[in-house]
Amino acid sequence: MKKMLGKIIASTRMKSPWILHFDCGSCNGCDIEVLACLTPVYDIERFGMVNVGNPMHADILLVTGTVNHRNKKVLTNLYDQMPAPKVVIAIGACGLSGGIFRDAYNVVGGVDRVIPVDVYVPGCPAKPEAIIDGAVLALKKFEVLRQQKLAV
């Protein structure tokens, strides 16, 4: 019974990942590609994904852009406000490592310098297809998290 319930929960989690998009100092290139995912041509609502715009509701945190000294705290704030289980997807060269800007003085670096990142989506900007792939990879991560929780 418990096992079945767990399976149901796992499958719904895979079918309804709500995303929170945070532009953490990106050049807007990746941002608009994230937004493009919502639009008719890519329509990630097919997978039940909606951009909820609020950390309290979100399962997946999509971060685009470099982390700088000022938005570092914002990023951790948002991450803290998300209820578990949660995964983080870093998008674009900037989100992964700071990209072309990583040597600039106000750049801390990639998202994983501040919060743990589960999926890296490369690209400059990352294409919507790549973002969808990244989201699919993130869904697998939910299953991993569930297994870990069961093991504990």
Binding site: G25, R70, V107
Partner: peptide, 21 residues
């Protein structure tokens, strides 16, 4: 300041061709 990267300063380490990108 949430997006400030400071790329005007990158001229010190990128040449003028690279600055296009």
């Amino acid at each position: 300041g949430f997006v400030h990267r400071g790329l005007e300063k990158l001229i010190d380490i990128r040449d003028f061709h690279q600055m296009i990108q």
